[in-house]
Design a protein around this nucleic acid. Structure first.
Lengths: 155, 155
DNA sequence: TCGATATCGTTATGATCATAACAATATCGG
DNA sequence: CCGATATTGTTATGATCATAACGATATCGA
């Protein structure tokens, strides 16, 4: 009786024996993000800021005072999540909050002087960190990656 | 006195006025992963499985019984985290655990019949989901993305 | 053999994440 | 003007995540 295949039998797969988790974008993206996030924490961890917290401060630095809701959208966080991040940053006096006088629903978030100083200190570090994460890629590959990721994220 | 720039002044940036959060890989990767994960949950959410839970089942399907620790490494999860995932899957009778007879430290994780049936049902769905996530890209771009992400994740 | 070292699983803590339900406020259309 | 609708922020629940510290078991070298 001829063998159906010259390959060794798959360890466990019965039906989808050609399936590989590594071929799924989501899995690759998750691991790549883990790496990037780990690189960032290694560098800015002494400030006790997480990646989302840093992103929040950086966005405020770029745009100035923002409502909590808009801030959340600009850092890709749900209302319930940006709320917690703002609370932690507020507890550390890196941001301050006030009510919008014209729209009583809104909470405006401001960088404090301490928050501004910290972002200005961390921004060059994160730029270097991005370079570290991208180190395995050549310049043209980095540009390509940005293009591809941007199109994926925007759907 | 000549204007130093014809551009409008940056909204709030004082020092790093040319910095943009969008230029940081970590931020792009996080958003792309959010999109991919959301696509997956939209499709397999009816099974009440999360992306990491699915990845865990898929890995067991590929490799057969694994120790909890090795399983965690193969799905990129810390020991404390894979433990919780295994507990949830075990509560739903999708996996079963037993002790390794030769190494009393190890807990071996097996797919149950129900778990196997569920993975086999979900694998084609996730393959379709990957296609959805990659829809904005052309075939050669997808291949390039995989190559770039793989090199990023592996450092 | 036996003690130093390494690995595995557990526990605890704190920070993201997504989702659903809800009250307060704004906005819009009739 | 005013009621339907939309937006903002909050609360609650449950699932990731990373990290550190710890006992139990294996392994390795003297």
């Amino acid at each position: 009786m001829p063998r159906t295949s010259t390959k060794a039998p798959a360890p466990a797969g019965r039906i989808a024996s050609d399936y590989r988790l590594e071929d799924q974008v989501g899995f690759l993206l998750r691991r790549a993000y883990q790496r990037a996030s780990s690189n960032l924490v290694d560098r800015i961890g002494s400030s006790d800021l997480t990646a989302p917290q840093y992103a929040t401060l950086a966005r405020l630095y770029e745009r100035g005072a923002l409502s909590q809701n808009l801030l959340g959208r600009l850092v890709a966080m749900e209302p319930a999540n940006i709320r917690d991040v703002v609370l932690r940053l507020k507890k550390r006096r890196l941001v301050a909050t006030r009510r919008d006088p014209t729209d009583k629903r809104l909470i405006l978030i401001d960088l404090t002087a301490a928050g501004t100083a910290l972002v200005e200190q961390l921004i060059p570090i994160e730029i270097a960190c991005t370079a570290t994460t991208l180190a395995p890629l050549k310049a043209n590959e980095r540009k390509q990656l940005y293009d591809l990721l941007g199109r994926l994220a925007d759907g």
